[in-house]
Amino acid sequence: METLIVSSVTVALAEIGDKTQLLSLFLATRFRNKWAIIAGILVATLLNHSASAWLGTWLADYLQSRIGQGLIAISFIALGCWLLVPDKDDSEESSLQKYGAFVAATVLFFLAEIGDKTQVATVLLGAQFDSIVWVTLGTTLGMLAANVPVVFAGDYLMRRLPLNGARWTAAAVFIGVGVYELCTHVLLPGS
C-alpha cells in the first residue's frame, strides 16, 4: 500500500506543470471527446510506466550494494532538482489529429513521456520498491489525478493552480526521499 501511495503522490506532484500536462490541455482544446483523451492518457501511461517500473525493478537487482543505493539516492535528489526547471509547451499541430482523440492522445502522450521527469521517477520508484504492478498502478493513478482535471477544466485550472508551488513541493519530496535513502542506506547503514 505504501508503494501505491508514494508512487501516486510523487508522480501527481511531479506532473503539475509538466509538458504532458500541457499536452493534456492542448488535446482538450482540439477534441470534444474528453473521455477518449483520458482513455488515451491511461493506455499510454500504462504502457510507458509498466516498462519503466520493470526497468527500475530490473536495475534494483544490480543496485543492492551501498554504491547502488547511493546512485538511487543521488538520482532522486537530481530528479528533485530537475523538477525545479519548468517545462515548455512544445505541442503543435499533429497529423495524428485526423485519427481522433484516442489515437492522438495515446501516441502523443506515450511519446511525450519518453525521457520525461515522471518516467524517470517511475524507474526510480520501481528500483526503490521492487514492484512493477504497484508502482505502475500508483504512477498511473498519479498521472490521471494530475491530467483528468486538466482535460475537463484545463484553462480554468491552469490559471489558478500555483504551478511554482507545486513544482517546489514535488522537488522537496524527491530531494527528501533521496536524502533519506542516502542517510539510511549509504552513510549510516544498519543504524
Rank of each mutant, 00 (worst) to 15 (best):
V85K: 15
F152M: 06
V148G: 02
R30M: 09
I37N: 01
K34P: 08
I74K: 04
G154M: 06
A60M: 03
G17W: 09
G142N: 05
L79F: 12
V135E: 00
A44Q: 09
L13E: 09
V179W: 03
L124V: 10
F129M: 08
L27K: 02
W168N: 09
V6Y: 13
P149A: 08
Y156T: 13
R160C: 12
Q69T: 10
G142R: 10
G100T: 06
G138Y: 06
K117F: 06
G56M: 11
S95T: 08
G56T: 12
I5F: 07
L46E: 08
Y180C: 06
L23A: 02
A51N: 05
T136D: 02
V6M: 08
S52Q: 11
D155Q: 14
L144C: 06
G115I: 11
P86M: 09
S131F: 05
D155I: 11
A53S: 14
A101M: 00
W54V: 10
A12R: 05
D130N: 13
V133E: 12
G142A: 08
H49I: 02
T106V: 09
V177Q: 03
D130E: 13
S50E: 11
K88S: 15
K34D: 01
A39G: 14
L83W: 12
F110S: 02
I16S: 04
L22A: 07
E15Y: 03
E15P: 01
S91H: 12
V173S: 05
L124C: 03
T57E: 05
V151Q: 00
N164T: 15
P149I: 00
L55S: 14
T118H: 05
A101T: 11
L141F: 13
A127Y: 06
A153Y: 14
T136K: 03
L71S: 12
C81Y: 15
A14S: 14
N147I: 02
I72H: 06
S50M: 13
L144V: 01
A60G: 14
F76M: 11
A101S: 13
L111K: 00
L125T: 02
T169P: 05
A172H: 06
R66Q: 15
G100N: 11
D90E: 15
E93K: 10
V150P: 04
S91V: 00
G178K: 03
L42D: 11
R32V: 07
D116F: 05
L182W: 13
K19Y: 12
F129P: 06
F76G: 12
L22M: 15
M158Y: 13
L71E: 04
I16A: 12
F110G: 04
L71R: 03
F76T: 14
I74P: 07
L79W: 05
R32C: 01
L46F: 15
I37K: 00
A14C: 10
L13F: 15
A170W: 06
V120L: 15
Q97C: 02
A145V: 14
T29A: 00
A166C: 14
V107N: 12
D130F: 09
P189K: 01
G176Q: 02
Y180Q: 10
D87M: 05
V135W: 01
G56A: 12
I74V: 15
M158S: 14
F152K: 08
H49L: 00
E15H: 01
L163P: 05
Q97S: 08
S75Q: 07
L47S: 05
P149T: 07
V85Y: 15
L84A: 07
T3K: 07
I114N: 00
A145K: 06
A39Y: 09
L161F: 14
H185C: 00
G138K: 02
